[in-house]
């Protein structure tokens, strides 16, 4: 565990060093940390604050403002389910319920509500690990959650 957090710390320092010459690099740094580690661990707050010469409170404030940033390690799959109007108009509420209840059964799939995936003309829409899937039904989304649970995470 100790060692683990030391490697994480080094990775975070590398990421900060890579971005330091950009204008206003905080968001790109947080994105890079999350894409490398899967989440933004607490130790990142101090590291990034030091690198950017900002306060811990500033970094914490930004980290918690944006829905995208996770502060805990993620499940094996990320499922975003659209709950917005164009999807609602064609059964999106039932798709959300199905996803949420399938995920409740300890599936290892993180189910998250989003408000429009820009896939409205092929609604209802979900996004699994960055891949958008359209015209889903409640059954299909349940199967996806259960099925994703059985397959290994891609790399």
């Amino acid at each position: 565990m100790e060692q683990n957090s030391d490697t994480e710390r080094n990775q975070i320092r590398d990421i900060c060093a890579d971005h330091i010459d950009q204008q206003a690099p905080l968001l790109p740094i947080l994105h890079a940390i999350q894409s490398r580690l899967g989440y933004v661990p607490d130790i990142a707050i101090g590291e990034v604050a030091d690198a950017l010469n900002q306060t811990h409170a500033e970094i914490f404030g930004v980290l918690t403002f944006y829905h995208d940033f996770r502060r805990q390690p993620p499940g094996r799959h990320q499922l975003k389910v659209c709950r917005a109007e164009a999807c609602q108009a064609v059964g999106g509420r039932a798709v959300w319920s199905a996803a949420a209840s399938a995920a409740d059964n300890g599936s290892g799939v993180d189910v998250e509500a989003v408000y429009c995936l820009g896939n409205c003309a092929c609604a209802p829409s979900i996004q699994l690990d960055g891949h958008t899937i359209g015209r889903v039904t409640p059954d299909r989304v349940s199967n996806i959650v259960t099925g994703a649970n059985q397959t290994r995470a891609p790399s």
Binding site: A24, P25, L26, L27, P28, L30, H31, L52, E58, G61, V62, F65, Y66, H67, D68, F69, V114, Y115
Partner: peptide, 25 residues
């Protein structure tokens, strides 16, 4: 390109500028 981070309000132009500058939107 700068990526947003899942905040609808950052589509509002001044919130977007804050976000681009690395702040809360």
């Amino acid at each position: 390109i700068r990526l947003g981070a899942g905040a609808y309000i950052c589509g509002e132009e001044t919130s977007m500028l804050e976000s681009l500058e690395g702040k809360r939107g």
